[in-house]
Design a protein around this nucleic acid. Sequence first.
RNA 1: GUGGCCGUAGCUCAGUUGGUUAGAGCGCCAGGUUGUGGCCCUGGAGGUCGGGGGUUCAAGUCCCCUCGGUCACCCCA
Length: 425
Amino acid sequence: MPPVSFRAPTGTRDILPPESARVIALVARFAELCRRAGYGLVLSPLFEDVAVFRRSAGEESEVVKDEMYEFADKGGRALALRPEGTASVVRAYVQHRPPLPWKTWYVTPAFRYERPQAGRYRQHHQLGVEVLGTEDPDCDVEVIALLHDFLRALGLERLELKINSMGDAVCMPTYRAALVAYLGQHQSGLCPEHKERWRRNPLRVLDCKKAGCQQVRVGVPRLADWLCEPCRMHFARVRAGLDAIGIAWRIDDFLVRGFDYYTRTTFEFAALALDAAQNAVGGGGRYDGLAEQLGGPRTAGIGFGCGIERVLLACDAEGALGDLGGAVEVFVVDLTGGGAARDLTHVLRRAGIGAERAFDARSMKAQLKLADRSGARLAAIVGASELESATVTLRDLRADQRRQSVVARDRLLDEVRSWLAVPAQ
RNA sequence: GUGGCCGUAGCUCAGUUGGUUAGAGCGCCAGGUUGUGGCCCUGGAGGUCGGGGGUUCAAGUCCCCUCGGUCACCCCA
C-alpha cells in the first residue's frame, strides 16, 4: 500500500492530553453542579430518526435546512446525527413518560455541516440540561443559574447574560403578523438575502447584521410590546428571580435563537474575553410546545446547551482552568531490567498512590529525565545494590538540593506517604 | 455555500533577483558523567518543500489546477 496520510475530517479535531484533562475537569464540575441541583444524566443515541430533529428545530432553521449529517442505514431508515441536544431528550421524555418534573443533564458531541472557523466545528461537544414538566418561572431562574454558576466555577468572569421572551402560542402569532406587515412595508430596504426570506422566517431579520436590515429594524415592532399578559408576568418573574439571587442580565429585544421551538424565555451567555466572532458559550430557553410536536402530551420544558470548545477558548482567554495537576506522585527508576519497576508501581498504585515508570530498560539518565518530565514528586530508584539489600533509594525531585535516602523496600509505602506529607523545599 | 490570508522537519519558522547536497530554534534519541533529572556542551535521527501539471538549462522560489489549514460572512455552542 502506498503511504496515504489521513487527517481528522474537515471541521473536526482530536482532543489529546494534556488538553483532554481540561475536558474531564470541566465535565466533572458540571456533573457535580447538576447533582447538587437534583439533575440526572440522560444518555441517548447519537442519531435519531431525521424527523425528530426536523420537527423540533423546525424546517426553516438553518440547522435543518442544510447543516444536518443525514444518512440511511442498511435497513433504509432515514437517520441523522444529532445537531443539538434538546430534541433527543424530549423524544426520550415522550417515549418513557417519566414522573414530572423531569430534571436531566447531558454531555454529547453535536454535528453540523458548516464551514469551520474559530470556535466553530463540524463536530463539537455540548453539555446542557433539560427540564420537562413545569412552566414555573423559578425553574427558568434555576436553569439559568446553573449555567451561570458553572461558567463562574470554571473561573470565567467576563460574561454577559442576554435574555428575552419569545411569547407563547397566543401572542407570538399576533406579533409575527405585525412583524410581517411591517417588513412588507419596508421590504425594499432589507438586505438581499432577507428580501427573499423575510416572509418565511421574519424573526431572522431581527438579528441580521447587514446595514439594510439594521436600518429597517429601527422602527420595527418590538416583541416586548406584544406579549400577552401571562407571558409578560412570566418574564417579569424570571427577571425578578435572577435579581433575587444576584445574577446580572440584560434584555436583548433582538435575541432570536436559531431553533423554532423556543417560547417565552430565551437566554444566551457571551464570553466577552473572546474577540472571535463566535463568542456565545451557552444558550437556551423555554420550549413549551416541543413535547407535543414530537407526539407527546403538551408539556412545558426548558434547557440550555453549552459548547465545551468555546468554553475552553474563553478559559484560555481569561487564564482560567489552568494547572490541573494530573501528575503521578512517584516515578520508579529501575536499573535492574524492569522487574522491580513492575512490582513497585503495582504496589503503589494499589495503595492509591500514582506511580509511573519507564519501559524498555532505558539508561538511568533517561529514566530520571522521564521522571522529571512526568511531574512526579519522588523518584524511587532500584539498582543492583538496592535489589541485593531489599531497599529503595527515595529521591525528592522537587528539592533544589539533592535530597535522597535509602529505605527498606517493605517500608516503601510508609516512607512515600511521609515524604509526600512534607512540601518540597 | 461565498470571500481574504496561509501551506518548508513532530512544533514555531528562515530560505536572497529562480542556481550545488533545503536550514535554525524547540522537541525527540544518544553521549559528555560505567548509579542521579532540571542547566550546559557534543553528536544523531527526522523532509515526496501539501498534491498534480506547466514554464525553464535549472523551481521550495514563477504560472495554472487541486487538496488542506485558518479567519470572516452566514448560522450557532
